[in-house]
């Protein structure tokens, strides 16, 4: 297994899929000549040319629509939306076309596009560059939503998403492109559904996804060291459909749950996981489940305020201690 950074893993998945199938293309702002804001397509323009590595104008809704239209005829576009904040502009084509066309055509047409986009709070990017949109996409019928927490997942999820016949939204994170991790040397396809136990434990389950998996893992370390609490960490890399059975299985073992999300609480991943807990394993719970979420504010520019707005490992530790009465 090679250790590589997240951007290298994503770039490798692009490269392998484009080498395999001439109908796989990449498109987005600055992804070609400039090599991509986060280097996810670095070098691919020189290798595959401007017809397949397409620098688009800054027209998010329409270039997303162009990718969807091309996918109707068998092309497999990997569309990069430079920041998930700009994906708001592309919601019409993603939601009204890609997610619905199979259904409203009675199964005749499909839109097998991959839309990759980084969200999240990075370094003082301000309110219009710090949004987390996974909660919006995960409520849309006909759209798959996945979100990698490490390079292995980032590589394998993109590989599977390109080949899957459904539209897949891949929620990445601005702060995670340089995160290092092991990626198999041979080809690897990560499932688009399910969840992974990132750390085994018996006292409480910490549910995380994308960056919050890392907050959960750090919190679990602290809890083990300082409190003797063995926390299980479940990585919800698939947000739609959500792994109801995986959620139930872990809580049936630990009987306590904390959901950690970078986004604001209302109508979010935490709300959905808590609904699943109610529906699937209410009587397994020894205590009411809790959420650790962002403050209900547009993300501020000021560094102190920005840090105060989003969760961190210490807040997860405190939530677990309260939950366990420590």
């Amino acid at each position: 297994m090679a250790v590589m950074m997240m951007w290298e893993a994503i770039r490798r998945a692009h490269d392998e899929e484009m080498a395999r199938d001439p109908l796989v293309i990449a498109m987005g702002e600055d992804i070609g000549v400039a090599g991509g804001t986060y280097k996810a397509t670095q070098g691919l323009y020189d290798k595959y040319g401007p017809e397949r590595v397409i620098d688009t104008p800054i027209s998010e809704n329409s270039f997303t629509g162009v990718g969807i239209g091309a996918s109707f005829l068998g092309v497999r576009p990997i569309i990069e939306i430079m920041s998930v904040n700009f994906a708001w502009l592309a919601l019409d084509q993603i939601v009204n076309t890609a997610a619905k066309v199979r259904y409203m055509s009675g199964g005749q047409l499909q839109a097998p596009v991959v839309i990759r986009s980084p969200g999240g709070t990075a370094h003082q990017l301000g309110a219009q560059h710090s949004a987390r949109m996974e909660k919006v996409f995960m409520g849309i019928a006909g759209l798959r939503v996945v979100t990698p927490s490490n390079p292995r997942q980032a590589y394998g999820l993109l590989k599977s998403a390109v080949r899957c016949d459904d539209p897949v939204f891949i929620n990445e994170h601005e702060l995670m492109y340089n995160l290092k991790g092991e990626v198999p040397d041979e080809e690897y396809f990560h499932p688009l559904e399910g969840s992974e136990v990132a750390r085994e434990g018996r006292d409480v389950t910490l549910f995380g996804y994308n960056i919050s998996v890392h907050w959960c893992l750090q919190a679990a370390e602290t809890l083990a060291r300082e409190d003797g609490i063995q926390a299980e960490v479940v990585d919800l890399y698939a947000l739609s459909p959500l792994d109801r059975e995986g959620i139930r299985r872990s809580v049936a073992k630990t009987h306590r749950a904390v959901v950690v999300e970078e986004a604001e609480a209302p109508v979010g991943v935490g709300a959905e996981v808590m609904a699943v807990l109610n529906e699937e394993c209410f009587f397994e719970l020894d205590a009411p489940p809790v959420r650790v979420s962002a403050a209900m504010v547009p993300i501020p520019y000021n560094r102190r305020l920005e840090k105060a707005a989003i969760p961190n490992p210490q807040r997860v530790v405190e939530a677990v201690r309260r939950l366990l009465g420590r």
Partner: peptide, 9 residues
Amino acid sequence: PLAVGMAKA
């Protein structure tokens, strides 16, 4: 844009 995408394909 869907028509443009089909033309691209």
